[in-house]
Design a protein around this nucleic acid. Structure first.
Length: 474
RNA sequence: CGCGGGGUAGAGCAGCCUGGUAGCUCGUUUGGCUCAUAACCAAAAGGUCGUUGGUUCAAAUCCAACCCCCGCAACCA
């Protein structure tokens, strides 16, 4: 049996779930469901990144123990993922004891590529963090939050020597041994690769305590990368549980374009350092724009995914974010578009199609003879295998719209009126079976709706008592 | 001349790699239908394919130059 391992980026737990996380989970879920229906055994990882000063400070501000703070946020995320009906199989927290232990083992294995060096930069004692040269310049050398001038500070850090692997990474990307999707991101990464510096992977304990201690050096604590990126391995048992070898390399790792560089450069370097294969595909999706603009707290145009979910429910949410949001490039969200997609497409095209077919069948006491083998069509598979999910969805939708056309062309109600029972039977059986085939393909995108549709055309056919997608009044 | 993406109908987009009738969805107008959620189907109107030049029998598509828009990325080492 084929093993398919799908990963999602682990969100940093210093805030609430936002719409970008939802995209991650939805995309991963689509591929997971697709793979399962094809017969693969699927592992679908999700998790949370819980270390670091920001979380530590946030907890302090709120006056709660940091463990309690992260627990509360993990619950929010788990709840969110459940609401999306994302079918993950494994959940990893970077504060899991087992994860921490495994991360330390990974660190030790990478040791020959890790070196200690001084870091010098602009530091704000108020924020307790370094800022980039650029940020310092933009703020004219003064921290806007604390009104204190940045200080030039020096400290010891461990660095991961990416330069040990650059040539091999380039080769892996160019040869598509590790596919980066979409193509234009691949080009971007190849350009970035040359100028990628070695990455700082620890902080002195005086600065950072909420993290995994560096093994064999009490003065240092791991800083995000080795800790967070390793989750993809620790969750499947690496290095002590040999089960990991069944799942690794990952079939696809889904990330937002903002963190692609870490996944396409640092992460492969780490894997090479560990002597492991690279993931087969890294899929980088775009950002959701609010009415053409980047969402930002300062602009105040952040769309709350929970609010969107509440409006018309999960099917509508997944419908919009999997079909009208392009898998790879940035896409827009506006309430108007969301309304239109729901009413014109889900309700009118699909909801109404189910209703009319079910009613036709029921009124004419149709005996439904279901086709034995339902499967994926070749074209659909082609799209799915190349991770063009929104296109695959378009393709399915085309089938649905076509069914509406065919009903009009074949006029089953006329056949009924003329008592052409035999023809009517054939006609309705054909239409309904075609709907069920489309519904099978639809089920990876809209599992809930698909279930309901299969139920309508179950052993007996009963039209939904309440519309599948009740329309909203304008 | 930092890098990347883009400019195609009122809106949103596909087509460009691999030149050969400009296409899809929404919206608009008209018509049809009555199985259905005021749903469905059909037809029509609507385009100097950013600009200029080049290659070619033929350019949205290839080449060159230019103009314009948007990002540099989810709160940020």
């Amino acid at each position: 049996m084929k093993h398919t391992y799908i990963t999602t980026a682990i969100p940093y737990l210093n805030g609430d779930p936002h719409i970008g996380h939802a995209v991650d989970y939805c995309l991963a879920d689509v591929f997971a469901r697709y793979s399962r229906l094809k017969g693969d055994e699927v592992k679908f990882q999700a998790g949370t990144d819980e270390h670091g000063n920001k979380i530590f400070q946030k907890a302090k501000e709120l006056g709660v123990p940091v463990e309690e703070y992260v627990q509360g946020n993990v619950d929010k995320f788990k709840d969110f993922i459940a609401k999306l009906n994302a079918s993950y199989t494994d959940f990893v927290r970077t504060t899991d004891k087992q994860h921490e232990k495994r991360v330390q083992e990974i660190w030790l294995k990478l040791k020959e590529h890790i070196y200690k060096a001084g870091y010098e930069g602009w530091y704000c004692t108020g924020c307790e963090r370094y800022v980039t040269e650029k940020e310092c310049k933009e703020n004219n050398g003064v921290c806007p939050d604390h009104q204190k001038p940045y200080e030039k500070l020096k400290e010891e850090n461990y660095y991961f020597r990416i330069s040990d692997f650059k040539d091999k990474i380039r080769q892996a990307i160019e040869s598509d041994e590790m596919v980066i999707l979409p193509e234009f991101r691949k080009k971007e990464i190849l350009k970035l690769l040359d100028e990628s510096p070695d990455v700082s992977v620890s902080r002195p304990v005086s600065q950072l305590t909420w993290g995994v201690p560096v093994p064999d050096d009490e003065s240092q604590v791991m800083y995000v990368w080795v800790d967070a990126l390793s989750n993809y391995l620790t969750v499947i048992g690496y290095p002590d549980d040999n089960d990991y070898s069944v799942w690794w390399p990952a079939s696809v790792q889904i990330v937002g374009k903002d963190i692609l560089r870490f996944h396409a450069i640092l992460w492969p370097a780490m894997l090479m350092g560990l002597g492991l294969n690279l993931p087969k595909v890294i899929l980088s999706h775009g950002m959701i724009l609010a009415d053409g603009q980047k969402m930002s707290k300062s602009v105040g145009n952040v769309v709350n995914p929970l609010e969107v979910l509440d409006k018309y429910g999960l099917d509508a949410f997944r419908y919009y974010f999997l079909r009208h949001v392009d898998t790879f490039s940035d896409s827009d969200f506006t309430w108007q578009k969301y309304d239109e997609a729901y009413n014109n497409e889900l309700a009118n095209d699909l909801g109404n199609l189910v209703q009319r077919l079910a009613t036709l069948a029921q009124k004419n006491n149709l005996v439904l003879e279901k086709r034995a083998n339902i499967g994926f069509s070749a074209e659909y598979q082609k799209y799915m295998e190349s991770f063009e999910f929104s296109r695959a969805f378009d393709y399915v939708w085309d089938k649905i719209q076509n069914l509406n056309k065919r009903i009009d062309d074949e006029k089953p109600w006329m056949l009924a009126k003329n008592n052409e029972t035999e023809k009517l039977n054939v006609c309705l059986n054909d239409l309904i079976n075609d709907l069920l085939e489309a519904n099978y393909e639809l089920s990876v995108f809209l599992p809930n709706a698909a279930d309901k549709i299969f139920e309508v055309f179950g052993d007996s056919i009963k039209p939904p008592e309440t519309p599948l997608f009740p329309k909203t009044k304008k």
